[in-house]
């Protein structure tokens, strides 16, 4: 189980276990949390969304696949995909090694306030704790 101390405070989180980081240019990076990578196990494949694709919040837009499971990744907010981390194509294990460094794709949010409204570390920790019961 993830240690609360490991949840970076500078990130926002979703109930579907994505983390969201606001970059200096106003775009957001999206990846999966430590908790999610632990549940999934050794990553073997990442399918990223197309750059330019318009996404609605909670829309399925990417897949991470381990040997024994596959999980959908959901857009945290409305917006457009502006970049994908193609390094994960050949090194999906980077997600296991350091999930908060291994961003999967970047979006330009339609509305920055949507990002601000996402869960903070404390609220997300509560979600993780409730799943453990």
């Amino acid at each position: 189980m993830s240690n609360p101390a490991n949840l970076p405070n500078n990130l926002k989180y979703t109930a579907s276990h994505e983390w969201v980081k606001t970059e200096a240019d106003g775009t957001i990076s999206i990846g999966i949390t430590q908790h999610a990578q632990e549940l999934l196990g050794d990553m073997v494949f990442v399918e990223s969304p197309m750059v330019g694709r318009k996404l609605k919040a909670k829309e399925e837009c990417a897949v991470v696949e381990s040997v024994k499971a596959a999980a959908d990744i959901y857009a945290p907010v409305n917006g457009a995909v502006v970049a994908v981390n193609s390094e994960l194509d050949s090194t999906p294990e980077a997600i296991n090694a350091d999930p908060y460094a291994a961003w999967m794709f970047k979006m330009k949010p339609d509305n920055a306030a949507d990002v601000a409204a996402l869960m903070d570390a404390k609220a997300y920790q509560a979600v993780v704790d409730s799943e453990a019961h």
Binding site: V44, V67, A70, D72
Partner: peptide
């Protein structure tokens, strides 16, 4: 590549 298959991916 079993993660494509019904016993893991079910409805998807």
């Amino acid at each position: 590549l079993q993660a494509r298959e019904q016993h893991i991916r079910r409805a998807k």
